[in-house]
Design a protein around this nucleic acid. Structure first.
Lengths: 129, 129
DNA sequence: CTGCACGCTTCCCTCAAGGTAACCACCCAC
DNA sequence: GTGGGTGGTTACCTTGAGGGAAGCGTGCAG
């Protein structure tokens, strides 16, 4: 049982899933790897602010949880490629509604929900969940 | 703009939503209030291990984010009821696929995904996401 | 008069996630 | 030989979320 770091202590499925994606950078890693496989350095450059130590740690956790696949190439300079496993892809799919909700309710709160619309558009990369 | 405690710093909708539901007890609160409105003490008794201080803090954050509604009744002994706002209900709906994923991939990992099935059934409250 | 239930608030403390910076082995280009 | 790029590891430090326990104001029960 590789997945889950608090085995047996979950109250429900959402609770359990939160343990897998709870890291500060994990959903961003998920999204980046969904677009295409990435090398370690590519990920570091695409996640502004992440440190090498933390990126390595979160990738190892995601790998242990069966979410990402790590492939080492015997070349020089050494190359390592990270990609999503099938389970990782299903996780991304399951996160899509939450991404939609976040876009509608946090990034661009609608007046109908009692929020005041900002006078500028929220800067969103198109297609990003 | 009540929602979001890191305004302007989100990379995507999932990231933003994670800020709203990131608290240790928030998804459990969400689920409890989805079933029916709760009083403070009821919630405390239904979430084994939560302290009054933390429960009050997370409820106040969820209220500031427009997820839960707090209604104070002028009775004695004092009564306060918490319920989900419409926005809270949509959040719960958006969390359902994630709950399904967690149940299938963390609580009861399938052999097809490379995990070994436990020899006992996972104790799950039926219908709980 | 004492205790209890309610819904908190306040103070103090712990601990783990995350951040900082240095270092490693390897090889190539300059 | 020096610097850069590869993909990390190691040791140390900071910070903030969360936990423990006590107190508070009210009113009723015993």
């Amino acid at each position: 049982m590789a997945i889950g770091r608090r085995p047996g202590s979950y109250e429900c499925g959402v609770d359990a899933a939160m343990d897998v994606i709870g890291g500060k950078w994990k959903v961003l890693i998920l999204w980046a790897l969904h677009v295409r496989p990435h090398r370690f350095g590519e990920l570091r450059r695409e996640l502004p602010g992440v440190t090498e130590k933390v990126l390595a740690a979160q990738l190892r956790e995601l790998e242990a949880d069966g979410i990402v696949h790590r492939e080492e190439f015997d070349e020089v300079p050494p190359r390592v490629e990270y990609s999503l496993t099938p389970r990782g892809e299903t996780l991304n799919t399951a996160l899509e509604p939450l991404g939609e909700w976040g876009k509608r309710n946090v990034l661009a709160p609608s007046p109908a929900a009692g929020e005041v619309r900002e006078d500028h558009d929220v800067a969103l990369i198109p297609g990003r969940p």
